[in-house]
């Protein structure tokens, strides 16, 4: 079921997750750690750890302290504690996010990971790639690609039953 939104056709989040998992099964190392970027990426990382065979430690990262818009927007309320329950030094890490847009969150997450240690490799997996990059960042694994107007945000939600769904908001809304 695709959510209705002005001018854009959103994929079904569960189908996109299946497609993402299928691509990762073909490429991700057996012992790669999955690190989800809060909050959407964290939900996806948990699900992928059960969908992608292998021994995948799951970690969470909150990029609030590494964002590049601190000087203009200040510190976002509701920052959470990053939790990486494995040794980052030497680890192969798949960084996982819900929606890839400018690439700025990915940049912040990579910088934060290096403050825990020097990983062997970092890959990027995203549920939805909406284009519009402002940094030279490309994902290795993508669930679905969507074209989306600049003034809209694509937002991932998780229902009480754990099912994921995508919606749109006007940019700047909560």
């Amino acid at each position: 079921m695709a959510a209705e939104a002005p001018g854009i056709a959103l994929p079904d989040a569960e189908e996109a997750l299946e497609a993402l998992a299928a691509r990762m099964r073909a490429g991700v190392a057996h012992g790669a750690a999955f690190v989800g970027i809060y909050s959407g990426g964290a939900w996806i990382a948990e699900r992928l750890a059960t969908l992608v065979p292998g021994d995948h430690a799951v970690g969470y990262i909150d990029v609030s302290f590494y964002r590049d818009d601190y000087a203009s927007k200040g510190l976002k309320a509701g920052a959470r504690r990053s939790d990486l329950p494995f040794d980052v030094a030497g680890a192969t890490i798949v960084l996982i996010d819900d929606v890839l847009y400018t690439g700025r969150s990915t940049r912040a997450a990579i910088n934060e990971l290096f403050d825990y240690g020097r990983p062997a490799a970092i890959e990027l997996a995203v549920l939805v790639d909406r284009g519009g990059r402002e940094l030279p960042i490309e994902p290795g694994y993508v669930g679905a690609r969507v074209a989306c107007a600049r003034d809209l945000s694509i937002v991932l939600s998780r229902g009480e039953d754990g099912r994921l769904s995508l919606g749109v908001e006007r940019a700047g809304e909560p």
């Binding site: 609030s64 601190y70 510190l75 309320a77 920052a79 504690r81 990053s82 939790d83 240690g117």
Partner: peptide, 23 residues
């Protein structure tokens, strides 16, 4: 409450390899 909530994730910075964030 917002200050106390914000302090919680900062508490873990001191336990890391690099005890610094770039804010």
């Amino acid at each position: 409450v917002s200050i106390l909530d914000t302090a919680a994730p900062f508490a873990s910075i001191g336990e890391r390899e690099v005890k610094k964030v770039p804010l």
